[in-house]
């Protein structure tokens, strides 16, 4: 035991400390090596940016200007970002006529264009399910159908996008309140607050949410320059996005892009609080089907049938 209390020699521990330091520097260099050729960069103001609901209108103006500049630098496009607020006395609802929808996927492409969705990796908000007649079991659906002509015999088509639930499982699980439901019923995401944990994607029963696995790629000439802060502005990498009922259009009284383009008139959008709106008429008079009603999510998106 007498040996155990022998102090370590100064020279020896000095040598070890030297070797240890060099090893630590080498290790740090090894870990950080991929940063050498990266173009990553963020400004302090972007890093410290607060939650949307904590921003004053002036703060938000500065941020939107900064984002416009960032898009100009990165994509070479001049764009115009605005913050569109919900309108009092409006609760949006969307109804889709399953008898009419022919599976053309025109809504999918219009949505991509309107909402500046990344081409690579490809992001789409709307999925059109091809189902065999006689079943509404989505597990029998084909998401990737490719035909010369639609509709195919013995099939019908069911587009699915964010259902803008009244009881949304996605906002409940978000650990940082980066996603919430606005007074007009639209669930939005603060793309500058989302930490990218993807818990909302696991929670959504409608597979409505998409993640930006890498920096969105969009050709300059295909960028829609009219952008909403909470809607179609080009998203940063590493955050979640989804359908927002084209709020930068609909809060100005226009229709969503997917409805505008629909060749069969299968889509009806409007204010459910207005008893004279077409959507209110459909909800009162048609046979309506709610996707996964048993999940208790209470969607604001409805499917209905003509015959």
């Amino acid at each position: 035991m007498s040996e155990a209390i022998r102090p370590t020699s100064g020279r020896r521990s000095f040598l070890k400390a030297g070797i240890g330091t060099m090893a630590a520097i080498a290790a740090a260099a090894g870990v950080l090596e991929p940063l050498r050729n990266s173009k990553l960069g963020t400004s302090l103001s972007a890093f410290l940016q607060q939650h949307y609901k904590r921003l004053s209108p002036e703060d938000l103006d500065v941020i939107m200007k900064r984002l416009e500049t960032e898009i100009a630098v990165r994509y070479g496009a001049r764009v115009n970002i605005k913050d569109y607020k919900p309108i009092e006395g409006v609760e949006f609802g969307y109804a889709l006529n399953l008898t009419r929808c022919n599976g053309s996927r025109r809504c999918v492409y219009a949505c991509m264009k309107e909402n500046n969705q990344s081409h690579d990796p490809g992001i789409q908000y709307i999925k059109v399910l091809e189902l065999p007649s006689g079943s509404l079991n989505v597990e029998k659906s084909d998401h990737y159908y490719e035909h010369e002509e639609v509709p195919q015999d013995g099939k019908f088509y069911m587009p699915v996008q964010c259902q803008q639930c009244k009881n949304p499982p996605c906002t409940k699980v978000c650990p940082v309140e980066a996603t919430w439901t606005e007074s007009d019923g639209i669930t939005v995401i603060d793309y500058n607050w989302c930490i990218g944990c993807r818990y909302c994607m696991a929670a959504c029963p409608y597979e409505a949410r998409r993640f930006n696995f890498s920096e969105p790629e969009i050709p300059k000439e295909e960028i829609n320059p009219e952008m909403g802060y909470l809607s179609n502005r080009i998203r940063p990498r590493g955050v979640v996005e989804k359908c927002h009922f084209c709020l930068h259009r609909t809060r100005q009284g226009k229709n969503p892009a997917c409805m505008e383009v629909c060749p069969t008139g299968a889509r009806v959008f409007g204010n459910m609080l207005d008893p004279d709106s077409e959507i209110s008429f459909i909800l009162r008079n048609k046979r309506v089907y709610i996707l996964k009603e048993d999940a208790g999510t209470i969607p604001r998106f409805f499917y209905y049938f003509d015959k």
Partner: peptide, 25 residues
């Protein structure tokens, strides 16, 4: 696993916006 590790501070109560007790995370 985080897409935005740079925004980790959003999880810090009061400084960030901590969704407690609603979010199990």
């Amino acid at each position: 696993d985080l897409g935005r590790p740079d925004r980790f501070w959003h999880l810090i109560p009061w400084i960030g916006k901590f969704n407690f007790p609603t979010s199990l995370l």
